[in-house]
Computed example of a mutant assay.
Amino acid sequence: MKIYNHLYQIVITSLTFPNIAWLQILRQKYVILALLLSLNFIAATPAMAANLSGDLLKQPATEITISLGNLANELKFEPNHLEFEAGKRYQLRLTNPSQLKHYFTAKDFADGIWTQKVQAGKVEIKGAIHELELKPGAEAEWVFVPLKSGTYGLRCSIPGHTEAGMTGEIAISN
């Protein structure tokens, strides 16, 4: 807008107008031009955001595997400490090698990320995810981008599993 104001001042001071009517017409045209240019910048914003997200989706995902339990049916996450960096794309591969079903529950973590997809078998889920259940022998893939830094709790919400030590920590840094 400063550029347009500057141009307006140049035009007004360099031209002499025979009457005030011409000056009013010029001001109206200036206001219309300024509004049209402003709308053009506003319309460009979603396109720019789409380009940024498109670039992010082209970024290769960093793969991390986490086991919910193990073959000895121990109630633990392996590893139980995960670290992510905000703004990077990750593929979390969840496996359950045990004979028990387990949950990957980390609601606050899930609220601080953008989920691209969760895929299990031939099913792909999109949107907000707060908890994943993995039955014995199951595998799932969670592709996401962390947005909010912080430290978040991870647990298996099956009664007795959290108390037995099936907990973890997820850290997101900037």
Rank of each mutant, 00 (worst) to 15 (best):
I25S: 01
I42D: 02
H81F: 08
A44M: 14
I66M: 07
E78M: 11
K122T: 04
D55W: 00
I12D: 10
T45Q: 05
N174M: 06
G137T: 13
I42C: 00
V11I: 08
P60S: 02
T45P: 01
P97A: 01
N73G: 06
L92G: 05
S38C: 09
T151A: 03
L75Y: 14
H102G: 04
H130T: 14
E74R: 13
G160D: 15
G127W: 14
S38V: 12
T115R: 02
F109R: 03
K76V: 06
Q119T: 15
Q116D: 05
G54I: 06
S173K: 13
A171N: 15
T16D: 03
K58T: 05
N5C: 05
I32T: 13
L52W: 10
H6R: 10
K122W: 08
A171Y: 15
S149G: 11
L147T: 02
A49C: 11
L57D: 12
L39F: 13
T95K: 11
S38I: 12
E163W: 12
I3A: 07
G121D: 06
M166Y: 06
F109D: 03
I32R: 06
E74H: 11
D55V: 01
L56M: 11
H81P: 07
E63R: 08
S67N: 13
P60Y: 03
S14W: 11
Q91T: 11
V145Y: 04
Q59D: 04
T151Y: 01
I129T: 07
A44L: 14
I64K: 08
R155I: 15
S98T: 02
L26E: 07
F84Q: 00
E139I: 08
L37Y: 09
I3R: 08
L36C: 02
L132Y: 09
N96D: 13
Q91K: 15
A21L: 14
G121H: 07
G160F: 12
P18I: 06
P136W: 07
H81S: 11
A110E: 02
W22K: 03
E169T: 15
N5F: 10
L7E: 08
P136Q: 00
L7Q: 07
Q99S: 14
K88L: 01
P136L: 03
C156Y: 05
L71Y: 14
N40K: 13
M166A: 09
K58S: 05
S173A: 11
P159K: 13
L94H: 01
A171S: 15
Y4N: 12
V145A: 00
N40C: 11
Y90V: 06
A110M: 11
C156D: 10
I172C: 00
T115K: 04
A138Q: 12
L15A: 04
I10E: 09
A50I: 14
I66H: 00
A49S: 07
R93N: 15
K76H: 08
E131H: 09
G160Y: 15
A34C: 05
L75A: 05
T16P: 00
I25E: 04
A43H: 11
P60R: 00
M48D: 12
I3D: 10
K29G: 08
H81C: 09
V11S: 00
S53D: 02
A72G: 11
N70W: 12
